[in-house]
């Protein structure tokens, strides 16, 4: 059977279209919807990185200011807590509220003890950056071979 090349082309076009549709299924990342857990809406998402002598934790905390956030460290235990207030203006009618409010608390057990006196915490564009230097005993050491 002779199939014209344009038919094949159209077939691929349809496949691409379906592929796009499927991709869109996952694009509700970060959006509150029925089938997601309640927890995910109020808990900030975090990233964790390990560098040679420090750890780094990043957390998504849009709308939160310095005073709304608490960071507690004890040995290798870290706790981030905070309260998200509603920023709804006075005298306005509400059409849509997707952004959650309320307080949250999240705790982590770090792989090693950190030096709590040298921890740096910065808040920028709604992201909390925590640099946690490892405790002296937990730092990597270079062993020279004799």
């Amino acid at each position: 059977m002779f199939t014209r090349i344009s038919d094949i082309d159209r077939l691929f076009g349809t496949m691409n279209f379906l592929q796009k549709k499927l991709d869109n299924l996952y694009s509700d990342y970060g959006r509150s919807s029925g089938y997601r857990w309640e927890l995910e809406q109020t808990f900030p998402r975090t990233n964790f990185y390990e560098n040679g002598d420090s750890f780094e934790i990043r957390a998504e905390v849009p709308r939160l200011e310095k005073n709304d956030l608490n960071v507690k460290i004890q040995g290798n235990y870290l706790e981030i807590s905070g309260t998200r207030e509603s920023d709804a203006p006075e005298g306005y009618k509400t059409h849509k509220t997707e952004r959650g409010i309320g307080s949250f608390s999240r705790s982590f057990t770090l792989p090693a003890d950190v030096d709590s006196t040298k921890v740096e915490a910065t808040l920028k564009d709604g992201v909390l950056y925590l640099i946690l230097p490892k405790h002296e005993a937990a730092k990597p050491k270079k062993i020279s071979i004799s």
């Binding site: 849009p62 203006p89 306005y92 009618k93 509400t94 849509k96 952004r99 959650g100 709604g126 992201v127």
Partner: peptide, 19 residues
Amino acid sequence: TVDIYENDDEILLHADMPG
């Protein structure tokens, strides 16, 4: 995620875009 508010003078849109 967005919040949308409206009053007589304007429509207000708040969108969370951390980072």
